[in-house]
Amino acid sequence: MNSVDLHTLTGAYVLDALEPAERAAVERHLADCASCAQEVRELSETVTRLGLAVAAQPGPALRDEVMRRIGTVRQEAPTTVRSARGGHVRPRWRWAPNWALAACFAAAVALGGVAVSQYEQAREAREQALQARIANDAVGAVLASADARVSTAPLRGGAVGTVVVSPSRNQAVFAASGMPAPPSGKVYQLWYNDGGGRMRSAGLMDSGTPAAATLMHGPVDAASGMGITVEPAGGSPRPTSTPVALLAFPTA
């Protein structure tokens, strides 16, 4: 412990990488060394800013270059500082061991990665909430339209399907009661039946809540009805399975 220059432990101190005895020694040193105390404040602020920064994850090339230079580039030229207790001036070398520099870099990258991940999760959650609100408003508008027409029909397995069509809005809403969840890795996909065997995608049902009302994507136009198929996750450009349900749109 006596052979270690306490001036070189500021980086490890900020990263909480010291043994209890070393940490206590550094804290005693900071009370007498204004220069080291200032360095600790600056390093703490830097690590915090790096952790909160919204930036791209550094690539492998950057990390390799930093690790290569750690062993060859000195941290900073020597400076002179005035002792907090006396008036004499003494030289101070601001060196840090290679492992401390590497630890600082690794911690900065880790904190930055966590911040980016948390930011992306929050952004995705906000976007999902916004899309859900827009969809709910659109569903409500179709159901509340003065010319809304409703048709109900039994589905396979005892489920019941209901479709509401609004000619003035050129939109349709579908809901199912008692419909089982699709098989693992599959989704329910809705289709407009344009006649003559032509089926046009109308989007996916929410696999987590198959009983919820779903705004069918795209305009109704001349579609006479709708169908439901089981498709791979993400949906298909055209039906790949026999429809599990076919419903005619209400005409009046």
Rank of each mutant, 00 (worst) to 15 (best):
I134V: 13
S207W: 10
F174I: 13
P91W: 09
R156D: 14
G112C: 09
A53V: 04
V66E: 02
A106K: 09
E231P: 10
R238V: 14
R200T: 15
V164Y: 01
G11C: 01
V73M: 12
G11Q: 01
A100F: 06
L18H: 06
C104D: 05
S224K: 15
P60S: 07
N136W: 01
A84Y: 01
A37C: 03
N98E: 14
R200M: 12
A222F: 13
L111Y: 05
A25W: 02
E76W: 10
F249V: 04
S201I: 11
A53S: 14
S241C: 10
K186E: 10
L43G: 01
A17E: 08
I134P: 00
V165Q: 05
P183I: 08
R149S: 03
L155W: 00
L15Q: 06
R28N: 03
L130P: 00
P60Q: 06
H7M: 00
L101D: 04
V4T: 14
V230C: 12
G185C: 11
T214V: 15
D5W: 03
R74Q: 05
S168G: 09
L215N: 12
V40I: 06
R238S: 15
V81Q: 11
Q38L: 04
P250W: 08
A248F: 13
V47Q: 03
P91C: 08
P250Q: 07
I228F: 09
L143F: 00
A248V: 05
L247F: 14
A84G: 03
V66Y: 12
